[in-house]
Design a protein around this nucleic acid. Structure first.
Length: 182
DNA sequence: CTCGGGATGCGT
DNA sequence: CGCATCCCGAGG
């Protein structure tokens, strides 16, 4: 399937987040392609967005967010799970989209309904921090283009972000079984 | 150096 | 609701 281009990621973050629904995430592990369909995402708009890690400024951890679009921002959370983001917009605009849930398509052996679980199932960890998502073994492709209803809700676990916590920046495919429960 | 807390998930 | 488990980032 056709790989998503750099240009795809170099756009308004809300647009990218919504357009990512239905696309395929591909990671080749031990010669085997693991593929999952993106069914739930969250948009983190930039340093002005108090829920975004980039709101704390440029640090060693978040510097990839400040870089060019189409790269993976992977970080460890609660000492035991990884979360994967895709950097969006032009270099210097520190925004990203968090992948929250996948629907298994191929070679997926574990649960994928949550940001930590999907990274485990796809073997995504700190080794992929800063990795180019136009790589042969790690990228996104066009996917299931069947129609769906888009649901917009507040983001999960960002109560510390004051009024930004109320913004509807979490997007998912209505009725999809693999959307994270909470 | 210490220390507080986290874009989670699971069991009670 | 508690807790595992550890890195990050702020402050001394």
């Amino acid at each position: 399937m056709k790989k998503l281009s750099r240009r795809f990621y170099n756009r308004d973050t809300v647009c990218v987040a919504q357009d990512l629904l239905g696309k395929y995430l591909v990671h080749r592990v031990n010669g085997l392609k693991r593929i999952g369909k993106i069914v739930e995402v969250e948009a983190y708009l930039g340093p002005h967005d108090l829920a975004a890690h980039s709101a704390k400024g440029l640090t060693p951890r978040t510097q990839v967010m400040f870089g060019p679009p189409g790269y993976a921002y992977v970080y460890l959370i609660y000492g035991m799970y990884y979360c994967m983001n895709i950097v969006t917009e032009e270099e210097g605009h520190a925004a990203a989209v968090l992948l929250r849930a996948l629907e298994p398509v191929k070679n997926i052996a574990e649960r994928t309904q949550g940001p930590g679980l999907l990274c485990k199932a796809m073997s995504i960890d700190k080794n992929l921090q800063g990795k180019d998502l136009l790589s042969p073994d790690f990228h996104l492709t066009e996917g299931d283009d069947s129609a769906f209803t888009l649901v917009k809700r507040p983001r999960i676990g960002v109560d510390y972000a004051k009024h930004w916590a109320k913004r509807h920046l979490r997007f998912y495919i209505k009725g999809n079984f693999f959307v994270s429960k909470r």
